[in-house]
């Protein structure tokens, strides 16, 4: 339980720091880079290396490559739909999470399981 709380605190802090930095940066297209900052990964992998070792973290990192490709598809899709169809950001960014999920879990089922 204590370890979970620690993970929660470290993850939340990393995400907030990167978000804070993104808010300060201009132009918006550059600040957007920080929307895909490795904040959760830094928190998780840092703790994983210490608790479970480098080999375990390397396995997670290999799968993260697939998740990152999914993120790329997701972000491209969100940008296109918002620009082209004028749908509110909250609707687009939440509904398009299904693209990330389908791609990432699909690739995991086919090649990594």
């Amino acid at each position: 339980m204590l370890q979970l709380l620690f993970r929660f605190a470290v993850g939340g802090t990393m995400v907030t720091l990167f978000a804070f930095l993104a808010d300060l940066l201009k132009p918006k297209s550059f600040a957007g880079l920080f929307g895909a900052a490795p904040s959760v990964a830094l928190a998780t992998l840092g703790l994983t290396i210490y608790t479970d070792g480098k080999s375990y973290a390397a396995l997670e990192a290999r799968s993260m490559i697939v998740g990152a490709f999914g993120f790329f598809l997701y972000a491209c899709g969100c940008s296109y739909v918002m620009m082209r169809f004028k749908v509110p950001a909250i609707a687009v960014t939440t509904s398009m999470l299904s693209i990330w999920l389908t791609f990432s879990v699909g690739v995991w089922l086919l090649f990594l399981r």
Partner: peptide, 27 residues
């Protein structure tokens, strides 16, 4: 507002390409 969010998402797409390199490096 929507255009700014779309530009932000385009930036995130480039950031996610960086995420691939991040993960590959650790792997």
């Amino acid at each position: 507002g929507l255009q700014a969010a779309a530009v932000d998402a385009a930036g995130a797409a480039m950031g996610s390409a960086g995420l691939v390199i991040f993960a590959f490096t650790i792997w």
